[in-house]
Each structure stands twice: as structure tokens, then as C-alpha cells.
Amino acid sequence: MGETRKRNCFVKWISSGKVNKRLCIVTFMFFPLLLLLVFTYIPFFKMFQFSFYDMKYIGSREFVGFENYINVFKRDDCFRALALCGYYIVASFIQLGLALYFASVLSFKVKGGGIFKGLMFFPFLVCGIAVGFVFKFFYTRGFVLDTVLQWIGFELDNLPYWLRDSSINNASLAASSIWRYMGQNMVLFIGAIMSVDSSLYEAAAIDGATGWHKFRYIIFPSIKTIIVLNMILSITGSLSVFEPPYVITGGSFGTSTYFVIMNKLAHENQKVGLASAMAIVLLLIILLATAAQKLGFKYFFGDGEEEAIRTRRKREKARREQA
């Protein structure tokens, strides 16, 4: 008897509002937070720790202070590899431009619009390693790209080796990245354009606005935020670019980006300390770049409801001049 009453008490206590709420919070958050801790934050702090050691994954380690960091800047193959990200930044801006163009075209009635959209988007769904094979094949001497270029009148002898010639191969790799991600950007932009109140377009049409006017005065201002956000993402993404060289050339012929080198140092050469230092350095650069861009973003476009600092300054200046 006593037992059951006790249990009843317990059940009551457990399902009473406050306790139940707390229990729910704790149990529901336990697993996701555990995963976050084990696979993100502990590795993050470990990486920080590793960066001060000369070590492999197994075996003894030796504390070396800042030597790894000094090496990151001293070695020929580490910090200088960041220069390659220039190619990918340019490519990602071309990609955003193309995506914006196709998105504005496809947001209005176009014959076969759905098919065009689908065909341009599909590359995004192809597995990274498959993309690697497809483009190795695509760029091979005398294969797909060369054949198509010959159709439109180029001579094979005048064409470069797309993946070997170090004056062009980074551009080839960056182009494959445009191929893969342009459609995804386009779909994002279409989504943003569609969320614009359609009565605006109707009103504009009554006023006799042309397509260009519609783009310039309705579409562009209303999706400005998402464009700028994507620009920020593409710069940080370009700093940490990894996939195209990793899957297509394996980093040979001078296409090793910063992360390809880091990956090689960590998993092939087992220089875990140096690789960790590289990761921390790039992470700091990315955080700085993100913060700087966020500030710049606030300066030009404002933050949510707040107006942009630049416009406010302008207005204040104008007021002062009036007075």
C-alpha cells in the first residue's frame, strides 16, 4: 500500500507543471547538446591545444610553443596557398551575378521555366566525388570541353591543358564550382523574389515599367539583403575552399588550396600540430572577415529595423548644412 502511494506521489510530482517542464527541457536537450559538445566544442579546444604540440595522432607529443604558428607563416606551402582563394572569390561573384540574372528571368512567365530551373539546379545534388570524376573527364585533353570548343571553331593545338597548365587550372577548378552551386544560388534568389508582394509588379506594369525598371526598382531593393548575405558567405567560403581541387586534381599542378594542404599535412603526413595551427589561423581570419563584413553590412544597409549608419550620417550632415 505504502509503495503504491509513494509511487503515486512520485508520478504526481513528476507530472506537475514546473518539474515536468524542467524535466522536459533537460531530457530534450541532452542528446543534441552532447553531440554539439563532443563533435564540435571539444574538438575545437583540442585543436587549439594540439596547435602548440609537435605530435601525431598516436604516440608521444612534445610541447613546442608557437613554433607551429611560426611555421604556418614561414613555410612556402602554407600561408601563401591562401592567394589561390582569389580565383574562387572572383568565381563566386560571377556565380552570384549569373544566379541573379537567371533568377530574375525565371521568376516571371517563361516557356519551359520549370525545366530550365531544374536543369540548372540539378548539379547541386550530385555527390562531390562524382563531380570530381565528371570534371576530370570533362577537362581531359581532347575530351568533352575540347570537343565542344572545336565545334565552335577553336583549334585543339591552341587550347591549353585545362588541369595541368598552372596559368589556367585554378580557373578551371573555380568554374566547376560555379557549375555546381550557381543553381542553388538561383533557387534562393527565386525564393526571395517570389516573396515580394506581387501587387507591386502589377502596379509597375500599369505604370508602364519595363523589365529593367522592374528589376532595378522592385526586385533588386527587395532582395538586396539576401544578395549581400550571399556575398559574405562566398568570401568566407572561398577562403576555406577545399572540394574542387581535392576531388578533381588532388591538389597537383599548383592547385593546392590552404585546406587541401592542411588535410594532407594532417592525414597523410600526420603533422597534426601544424595542421591544427593552420586551422586555427584560418579560423581567426574567417571570424575577422565575417565580423568586418557584418560591420560593413550594417554601415551600408542597416540592421533589421535600424537604418543604415551611412544614410543616417548623410541625413545628419545635410541637416547641419541646412542650419
Binding site: 563532443v38 566544442y41 585543436m47 594540439f50 595522432y57 585546406f259 597534426v272
Partner: peptide, 26 residues
């Protein structure tokens, strides 16, 4: 704090994290 912890985690480049995640998995 938890929301921000997840947001910050998304800033960390995955490939770089694998250097030390590998050690933990090991």
C-alpha cells in the same frame, strides 16, 4: 546562449574540425 552556440558551430569549417574530431573518434 545555446542558440548562439549552434550558430557559432556553423561558422567552424568542417574540414578543419576533422583534424581533431579524428583524434576523438580514434
Amino acid at each position: 546562449l545555446i542558440r548562439n552556440a549552434f550558430l557559432f558551430a556553423s561558422l567552424l569549417p568542417g574540414i578543419a574540425m576533422q583534424v581533431s574530431v579524428y583524434q576523438i573518434m580514434y
